[in-house]
Simulated assay, not measured.
Amino acid sequence: MTMRTACLTIFAMLAFAANSLLCRLALKDGHIDAASFTALRIGSGALVLALIIRARGARPLAAGNWRSAWALFVYAAGFSTAYLGLSAATGALVLFGAVQATMIGYGLYAGERMTARQAAGVAIAAAGLAALLLPGLAAPSLPHALLMAAAGIAWGVYSLRAKGAGDPANATAGNFLRAAPMALALGLAWLPWSRIEGAGIVYALASGALASGLGYVIWYQALRGLNATTAASVQLCVPVLATLGGVLLLSEPLSWRLLYSAVAILGGLALVILGKARPRQG
């Protein structure tokens, strides 16, 4: 890995973790409602991506499709709403687990077969997630956790569809532009109950324009210098970064329950990612 690729990768991982922190920061003190946050995030991300694609001499809507745009919208709306009741750490952990579970599940459906090590990894990760969500004083809000899981499934679907979409930056720009009217409609529908403060607007725009728009473009640049296993592995640090940011910047508690669950979930997923899947025999 070159120094340029390493720097791009680090920036992209920080941007992905920042999405959780910015959303939680905006919502936890009521600076903005979830629907307005979603609209501003998708809208500003679409604008930045469109400008980048225009600067490259391409048409922003030339790539992407409506199905992927719907998956993107469901992810963004579920993500924002779930963070009304989850800490940055818990939300990032549930989201990441659901994304990986969706992609692993699709691989099995498509004919991949797990090694014993991968199967053990799935079992460990599942046990960690179950331990996190089991009822108790330290358990997160189950409805919000399920909503974040749904957002993760939607993002997993979006990621799977993006694999065959040609230039990923162009496809992402087209999908954001198609998702923007959906997010705007959600924001307008929620307008009678909306709450929008200056700080909330700043957090939402930073999430959309910087952490999402620029973050995705930088990640796609980094991917050119990473193999598939490394690309999947480095994403394991995103929930860790979100957890550290939540503790240091948002004064969120770090419980033993969350810590043990995080080790089990991320460790189990690492076993799956680093294992070698075998193609299914006729």
Rank of each mutant, 00 (worst) to 15 (best):
1 M>Q: 11
4 R>F: 03
5 T>S: 01
6 A>H: 14
10 I>D: 05
16 F>W: 10
20 S>Y: 14
23 C>G: 06
28 K>I: 15
29 D>C: 07
30 G>Q: 06
30 G>T: 13
31 H>S: 13
33 D>W: 00
38 T>W: 07
43 G>F: 12
44 S>K: 06
53 I>M: 08
54 R>L: 15
54 R>V: 12
55 A>K: 13
57 G>V: 01
57 G>C: 05
62 A>H: 12
63 A>I: 11
65 N>P: 02
65 N>G: 14
65 N>F: 06
67 R>S: 12
73 F>P: 00
74 V>M: 00
76 A>M: 11
82 A>Q: 02
82 A>I: 03
84 L>V: 09
92 A>N: 13
92 A>S: 14
93 L>Y: 03
96 F>D: 06
96 F>Y: 15
97 G>K: 07
99 V>K: 01
101 A>N: 05
103 M>C: 09
103 M>D: 10
104 I>K: 05
108 L>H: 08
109 Y>M: 14
109 Y>D: 01
110 A>V: 11
114 M>P: 03
116 A>W: 11
116 A>R: 14
116 A>N: 10
119 A>G: 13
119 A>E: 01
120 A>S: 10
120 A>I: 12
121 G>C: 11
123 A>V: 11
123 A>H: 04
125 A>D: 04
125 A>K: 08
125 A>C: 02
130 A>M: 06
135 P>G: 10
136 G>V: 03
137 L>E: 15
140 P>Q: 06
141 S>H: 09
141 S>V: 05
144 H>Y: 12
144 H>P: 00
147 L>W: 04
151 A>R: 08
151 A>S: 15
153 I>F: 02
155 W>H: 07
156 G>E: 03
158 Y>C: 01
163 K>P: 01
164 G>Q: 03
166 G>T: 03
167 D>E: 13
173 A>C: 13
174 G>H: 06
175 N>G: 04
177 L>G: 07
178 R>L: 11
179 A>K: 01
181 P>K: 06
181 P>M: 02
185 A>M: 10
186 L>R: 05
191 L>W: 15
192 P>V: 05
192 P>E: 10
192 P>I: 08
194 S>P: 08
194 S>C: 02
198 G>V: 09
198 G>W: 02
199 A>R: 10
204 A>K: 05
205 L>G: 10
211 A>K: 01
211 A>G: 01
213 G>L: 03
213 G>K: 04
213 G>M: 03
214 L>T: 07
218 I>S: 12
225 G>H: 07
227 N>G: 13
227 N>E: 12
227 N>K: 05
231 A>G: 14
231 A>W: 05
231 A>T: 02
231 A>P: 00
237 C>L: 14
239 P>H: 06
240 V>S: 07
241 L>Q: 03
242 A>Q: 09
243 T>N: 07
251 S>G: 07
252 E>G: 07
253 P>E: 00
254 L>Y: 01
256 W>Y: 11
256 W>M: 14
256 W>C: 07
260 Y>D: 09
261 S>E: 01
262 A>R: 04
263 V>I: 15
264 A>G: 09
265 I>C: 00
266 L>H: 06
269 L>A: 04
273 I>P: 03
282 G>Y: 07
